[in-house]
Nucleic acid binder design. Structure first.
Lengths: 203, 203
DNA sequence: GGCAGGTCTTGACGAGTGTCAAGCATCCGG
DNA sequence: CCGGATGCTTGACACTCGTCAAGACCTGCC
């Protein structure tokens, strides 16, 4: 029936457009934030007109949650390569720290959107489920880094997964804010802090 | 001239009303967040009507920045008593951890507002000055706790002030989100985590 | 009392919002 | 070549927003 037999079934086309729309939305959301990104603005930054949103999504919230889940899926394996290729603890720490800095430089809009949404979820219950799910995914991602680091070091993580994530997330958020405020040296500081901190995360 | 000689000079009355309006605004902002707290809603939760805002404040932004600065002034000495009365490191850690938990329970709306504003400042430049200033004040507050803890322990802080703040802020934010999402045991976890973490913050 | 002055309410404005229905375009099977 | 379904645009709706001007209220002084 619906198995992928033909080149491009109508349903595929539908999903493609949905995806394209979500991509545009994500760009606009990263630029303006959750509150100020209107559907008209989102549509303006895409190849569609403002009415089409309700053809592919029930309402604004469904669009945004879809976007953010997509972002999650795209972002969650950002550190996998570092984890897999590192052969020494020093190599992993260096790779991890560099990747964090690179993330801030290249994906600042996406990540300020994430912090925006997480803050909004403290007010809007309808966002909480998606936010908690994504937060868990990020925690798992960090945990993969730290457990690998522990293995390479022949030691064990000193703290629970959530604590480790909370700490690193705090530092990352601080650096992101500093970077967006044009504070000098914030990226190098983050790199050094990660280097200093990682050993502390093991027993 | 303008010295406080009379019972209540007109200028005083003016400031009192300004303050009362700011208090109402702060309550509404804590309830709805930065984006959804309209001037009408703020006025509804006060003894005034919606037009009066522009009598006491130039515009919405001036009102909000005024509110948040007031909040800062009110909140910045929250841990002073713990710092001043503790005679042993254990006492200080326990008092600090309890106070953090108490803050989440009693002042959750104010603090989600703070995180909301800090996120918004990543998008709106007009908020950054105030946000950075408040962030620094919070960092100083945490630093007072940690240096006192170090003194009582006869040791020295292991990390820079900003790192220490970033770490604790990360954990606090995580606990606040969990608390607002009705996650069980989140407050006790925070308490234990602070107990575990504080020794790590010293050399 | 009456008349300023500051204080506050009311109502309106234009701009912007999410949503949706009606209609145009485009494509595909007959 | 046609006709219907699908995809998309346009325009309108009901609403909310920040802002401000016009006037009412109120208070205190002559």
């Amino acid at each position: 029936m619906t198995t992928a037999q033909a080149r491009r079934t109508p349903a595929d086309r539908h999903d493609e457009r949905r995806q394209a729309l979500a991509d545009s939305a994500l760009r606009t959301l990263g630029e303006l934030g959750y509150a100020r990104a209107s559907l008209r603005e989102i549509a303006n930054n895409s190849e569609f007109s403002h009415g089409v949103v309700h053809y592919y999504f029930r309402d604004k919230l469904e669009l945004i949650v879809y976007c953010v889940r997509e972002y999650k899926a795209r972002c969650v394996h950002r550190y996998d390569e570092v984890v897999e290729t590192s052969r020494t603890p020093e190599e992993l720490v260096a790779g991890f720290a560099d990747k964090l800095v690179e993330t801030i430089v290249e994906e600042a809009p996406m990540h300020r959107l994430w912090y925006d949404l997480r803050s909004q979820s403290m007010f809007e219950e309808s966002l909480r489920e998606a936010v908690l799910q994504i937060d868990q995914t990020l925690e798992d991602m960090v945990w993969r880094v730290v457990t690998t680091y522990a293995d390479l070091s022949g030691r064990a993580p000193a703290m629970a997964s959530a604590v480790t994530y909370g700490i690193l997330d705090g530092l990352f958020q601080q650096a992101l804010l500093g970077h967006l405020c044009d504070k000098e040296g914030v990226l190098d500081e983050l790199r050094h802090r990660v280097h200093d901190l990682m050993p502390v995360l093991l027993t």
